[in-house]
Design a protein around this nucleic acid. Structure first.
Length: 162
DNA sequence: CCCTGATTCGC
DNA sequence: GCGAATCAGG
């Protein structure tokens, strides 16, 4: 964003009119972050902020920009700096025991291979998406319940439907 | 999960 | 200085 005097004036004006940062961003074709960032830098009067930041709260985790990608070294030395002494663990090191999968977890993975109902549940591409996975009717890709939804008898359809 | 504004910090 | 990422709340 090239913050020309005109742009800054516009920002000031829209800000003074009480538009949301996102709205100002939309009107100016920039992100709301750019708006709020610039507004902050211009010491524009702060809006009532929905958030309450505790000054005593130690920065959650280096907020802000993501850490830069680690520089890609040409090659990691296989045997890097030989250690003179092993670091002594303060407490006995418990190497992670592979968690025994709970049976419910196992159940969460449907057996795709054979006769599981593949009626989609939820929005494809979203986190909760899954297939029904109840036992499918023989010869059909769906369980009884979903087969009833899937196979609509042509005979039942109204010809004169509007 | 949509929205909000504030803050941090790599660039 | 800039603004994306992230936070934190509605």
């Amino acid at each position: 964003m090239d913050w020309t005097n005109e742009a800054i004036d516009r920002l000031r004006a829209l800000w003074a009119e009480g538009h949301s940062t996102a709205e100002i961003g939309r009107r100016m074709g920039i992100s709301k972050n750019a708006v709020v960032g610039k507004a902050h830098r211009l010491d524009l009067p702060a809006r009532p902020s929905p958030i309450r930041r505790d000054p005593a709260t130690p920065r959650p985790v280096a907020t802000g920009r993501r850490p830069t990608l680690p520089p890609l070294r040409a090659a990691m030395p296989i045997a890097a700096a030989p250690r003179r002494e092993e670091p002594k663990p303060v407490a006995p090191t418990i190497l992670a025991l592979p968690p025994k999968p709970a049976s419910s977890v196992v159940r969460a993975f449907p057996r795709v291979s054979s006769k599981a109902c593949c009626w989609p549940i939820g929005e494809p591409g979203t986190k909760g998406f899954r297939f029904c996975s109840e036992p499918a009717m023989s010869g059909k890709p769906y369980c009884a319940e979903h087969a009833a939804l899937a196979y609509v008898r042509v005979k039942d359809r109204r010809e004169d439907a509007a």
